[in-house]
Amino acid sequence: MNLGLTGRRALITGGSKGIGFATAKVFAAEGADLCLVARDAVGLADAADSLRTLSTTSVSTLTADLSQASERERVWEAFPDVDILVNNAGSIPFGSIDQVDDQAWQQGWDLKVHGYVDLTRRYLGTMRARQQGVIVNVIGASGERLLDSYAAGSTGNTALMAFTRIAGSKSPSFGVRVVGVNPGLVASERVDHLAAGDEAGDQAPTPGFRIPFGRLATPEEIAASVVFLSSDLSSYTSGTILTVDGGVTYQSDSALGASPN
């Protein structure tokens, strides 16, 4: 499907794996040039090499820890003129209110909540000057289905949902769209670690918990939604958050457990 993205430039944070890498692949297939940011230099280089074998579009990379304000400024200075920003980098610890200590809570929010807010504000300014641009915040369905077992994540995601709606309600006045995507459980390394109980303090979903369609979502399914919302085919969409969780959010009898997004 031609989404009209050829020649546009997309910045994707957390772009070396999972939803971020899958999103980069879909953008590349649509002819968009890529700017990828991640903390893992080796993983980022591998992702870029893989993308270059799949497409002739430009792939630029920058290793950065987006939990740090100075690093977010460095990203903005390196890639000031992107057409699309996808905020995707985030890892908030799993656990109830009494399980997540102050340091872990702060570190999770510094990366995802403050990281998204800061980069959105920075790029809103540059996009406003051009009267054009799209920002997509990949948030998480736990912001809708509030979970004691994912207290820091649910609270942070709810804040990001409100922020996205506020920003997206105003941005059309200067030609910019801000939207969000709320994934449910997605097949990824993080979910594998949770299921194995590898993260300290985590209470992973128990084996046999019920999930829609009998499987987890794939990163590619979330990526398709992100890229479509970034395109002109969704040009009248702003301040909207698309939930992609197979309907779990509204299943009152679900035994799903928490989304780690």
Results as ranks from 00 to 15, higher is better:
K25C: 13
E199K: 11
L124C: 14
L85C: 15
S252Q: 07
A41F: 04
D40I: 13
A151C: 12
D148A: 15
E199S: 10
S254T: 13
E144T: 06
Q107W: 00
A151G: 09
P207H: 13
D49I: 03
Q106L: 13
G208I: 07
F94E: 15
G184D: 06
A47S: 08
A195D: 08
E73W: 12
D118S: 15
G133F: 01
R177N: 03
E221V: 09
A104T: 09
R52Y: 03
V181P: 05
I241Y: 04
F228T: 13
G247C: 05
D198I: 11
F21E: 08
F174T: 01
L85M: 14
I211L: 04
T13Q: 06
S173R: 10
D198C: 00
N137K: 05
L185E: 10
N2P: 13
I139G: 07
L66S: 08
S171K: 01
G20Q: 10
V75W: 03
T57R: 03
D65N: 14
N157M: 03
V42F: 05
D33V: 07
F21L: 14
P207W: 09
V248F: 01
T218P: 06
I92C: 12
E71I: 02
A152H: 03
L54Q: 12
R130P: 01
A22D: 10
I166Q: 12
D83W: 11
V134K: 07
N182A: 08
W105S: 07
A24P: 02
N182L: 14
L160W: 00
V117T: 14
R128Y: 03
S142E: 02
C35F: 09
D65T: 05
S230P: 13
S235W: 00
Y123V: 12
G184N: 08
D101V: 12
D253P: 06
M1N: 12
A29F: 09
T56P: 00
D40T: 12
P260D: 01
G4Y: 04
R52D: 02
G214M: 04
D98S: 14
Q68H: 06
V191A: 06
A28Y: 05
S173K: 06
V26I: 10
A47Y: 00
V244A: 13
F94M: 15
Q131F: 00
V186M: 04
L111H: 07
V75F: 06
H193P: 02
Y116M: 14
G90H: 14
D232K: 04
G143C: 07
I211G: 01
G125D: 15
L160Q: 00
S96T: 15
P205F: 02
F94H: 15
E71K: 10
T56M: 03
V113S: 03
R190Q: 14
T23N: 07
V178A: 10
H193Y: 11
S254R: 02
L216Q: 10
L54Y: 00
H114F: 13
P183S: 14
Q103G: 11
V136G: 08
D253E: 11
P93F: 08
I135M: 02
F213C: 14
G115M: 10
T237I: 11
E220D: 13
P207I: 08
A196H: 03
S91G: 12
E220M: 15
L62N: 09
V26S: 04
F94N: 15
L5H: 13
V191K: 07
S169K: 12
T126G: 02
T13P: 12
V191T: 08
